[in-house]
Amino acid sequence: MDPATLSNLGGIELIAREVVEGFLMGLHRSPHRGFSAEFAELRAYQPGDDLRYIDWRMYGRSDRYYVKQFEEETNLRAHILLDISHSMGWSSDPALPTKLWYAQHLAASLALILLRQGDSVGLAAFHDRVVDRVHARGGRRQWYELLKRIQRLEAGGKTSPEGALREVAIRLRRAGLVILLSDLLVAPEETRTALKFLRHHGHEVLVFHLVDPGERELPAASEALFYDPETGEELTVSVADIRSEYREAVDEALTEWERSLRPQGIDYQVVDTDRPLSLALRGYLRKRERLG
């Protein structure tokens, strides 16, 4: 279903479930593949260890306390970085959802898939700083926590993801999957540097570049005074005269993003906000399959 139809369905939970279920059904694959906690080793008990994990059999055999060590309960620690800058709250058409709406629902859907797969999911919402953060955890409760936090998010502030990305990179001690949802109307060089910084810290990085159709195609006006709601900057443009050049400029900008990120091992996907969410999820799936 396209986003305009989805937005009429109901709350974010229902929509995310609908998207994910539909998506997974389409894949004909079990959403529970690899969902298990595997025993790894025993170690000597130390004060403070959870008593539930004491291996009583070993205690019976050796009269010593051992604690059962498991592999990580989830396959992956995923961190969704959600851009909530002012520009994300824009839509070129009242019938279309805003980029933030699309990002929120994409984040919720991704989180649902990740959690169903046994991964842990965290969230960081930012504009020029991190404004909200949910630590990565697994389980159903995490899903509801994430939904609650995602729903509260509102667009505002200037976009400056490089700071937020560095902050996230520093806080995440264990390498994982970082999913950036942003319109990338940012300073490109600084942002690329920050993404490389994440990559340098061992994180897999997946960038969803949200693009409103109105950003690809200029509106039907001969002359217009455009202003950036984020910065207030204004620019008078003869739309009819630069329409094709503008389209080329957008394509070039998107191509530049891909060209600069792919060599760094950063996956990049353009997501048009008038296209179904499942297309974006496919991008995630490919990434997830590669990660194993």
Binding site: S87, W90, L185, E215, F226, Y227, D228, P229, V237
Partner: peptide, 9 residues
């Protein structure tokens, strides 16, 4: 000219 919001300035 018509004034309109446009983030992709």
């Amino acid at each position: 000219a018509r004034r309109m919001a446009f983030p992709a300035l």
